[in-house]
Design a protein around this nucleic acid. Structure first.
Lengths: 230, 230
DNA sequence: TTTAAAGCAATAAATTTTTATCGATTTTTT
DNA sequence: AAAAAATCGATAAAAATTTATTGCTTTAAA
């Protein structure tokens, strides 16, 4: 590995293990389920069982939040929930805009779950004249030309990119220029952002690749079994 | 870890490293980009640079497909593309149905990229009378009651779950009963499937958790800097 | 024709993430 | 009141993944 490559990698000085971070929403959902059921305490053993994980992993993951549990009892669910939420910053409202009011954009606007995570999508932007001026899921759609002004005036922190990949970088540059600090990218391209802006890309095809690999090995295994029978 | 926990974990005897699998679509997209540009060969160095990775990692990932490269030159792009595609089974058409013709379902139906990955969504199913009988993106929407019959008659392999979490398991059970072999789950719950069915869940909130963590540490760092200035 | 540079392939080292182990603590049972 | 069971927290070990190193091969330049 040369020095240039090294520097590219060093850009993300990660604090917490990403796999652990990714599991936190799972715990959160399960814990809220317990809450609805009227349960007050939960042990790692219980949580692990319900999520198909193992207890040590759950314990280690949850320890990121600084929660203290009691032996033989577990954690207080209310406290654990608020610990996870505050750990992720989900207890604070973060203003966002969404660029690309197409089908995917509409789906994200429609998913109520994100509101619970502090995500407040204030406006959507598009270039389609037919969409501009309308509302999608009670979120106003404005012209992309007004993006920068809106971001500046409303102190928007997060930008959600749901445009075709051909214009994703363009839109990103616009947002960065306007002062956006974080980008949640649903387009399948790597976005270039300055070091003072964070970016996270959702790769739907990555997930499909994993599924495809599972399918392939499943079918291969069955073929093998089939043959050995004869 | 007790024995029960061990068994839960052992269920997924993985063949290839999941992080590597997840990067394959990235390579594929970049390679197709090269193809459009008329480039014929690409080295790991080049690919790594363009994707923000390092060359050894790219080389190791690509070696999964069994491709052979030439020193000082790199890989033949056409061959590499077809190697990756066949490795993932994306060179074969796999029939799928989609359950839940809402906003998210519509977004998936509208994403042309999946067709390139061999995914052929033959029909969508819903319970909403207003949707049944219509077409979304030239994909017919049928009543959920007809799901089992359709899956059986058309030899559907993959089921895509885009229903609210409250009915996700129900729908899954229906599909499994009908003979579906793979489930691509967009609902935020863990689905129980028999061992002869594979399942992959897309966790959008996991991605948001990672972004949120980045935002939080970014803001924290800035605060620290701000304070040290005074 | 020789030398240098680029880069593949394989192997080794380092890092990260997961899993196991163990002692201590709290509750429940005897 | 003592013993047993559950489970936390911390530490250690194992496994998975990433990164580094080395030698060899191919191409291009001197």
């Amino acid at each position: 590995m040369n020095k240039a490559e090294k520097n590219v990698q060093r850009e993300d000085k990660k604090g917490y293990p990403s796999p652990s971070l990714q599991r936190l929403p799972l715990y959160l959902r399960q814990l809220k389920q317990y809450q609805r059921e009227g349960v007050e305490k939960a042990s790692c053993t219980r949580i692990a069982q319900d999520l198909g994980l193992i207890s040590v992993q759950v314990r280690k993951d949850l320890s990121m939040t600084g929660i203290a549990g009691r032996p033989k009892v577990g954690y207080n669910i209310d406290e654990l929930i608020s610990r996870i939420e505050s750990f992720l910053g989900w207890d604070k409202k973060r203003k966002a805009v969404l660029i690309g009011a197409g089908a995917l954009g509409g789906a994200i606007l429609g998913y109520a779950g994100f509101v619970e995570h502090g995500l407040s999508i204030c406006a959507a932007f598009d270039v389609d004249e037919k969409k501009i001026g309308t509302s999608i899921r009670s979120c106003p759609v404005y012209s992309l030309d007004d993006l920068e002004k809106f971001v500046e005036q409303n102190q928007i922190v997060i930008g959600i990119v749901t445009v075709p990949q051909s214009v994703a970088q363009l839109v990103t540059d616009k947002m960065v220029k306007a002062g956006i600090r974080a980008i949640w990218n649903y387009s399948p391209v790597r976005l270039n952002v300055p070091s003072n802006v964070v970016c996270e890309t959702v790769q739907l095809s990555s997930s499909f690749a994993v599924l495809s690999s599972k399918v392939k090995s499943m079918l291969a295994e069955e073929k093998k079994k089939e043959q050995s029978k004869q």
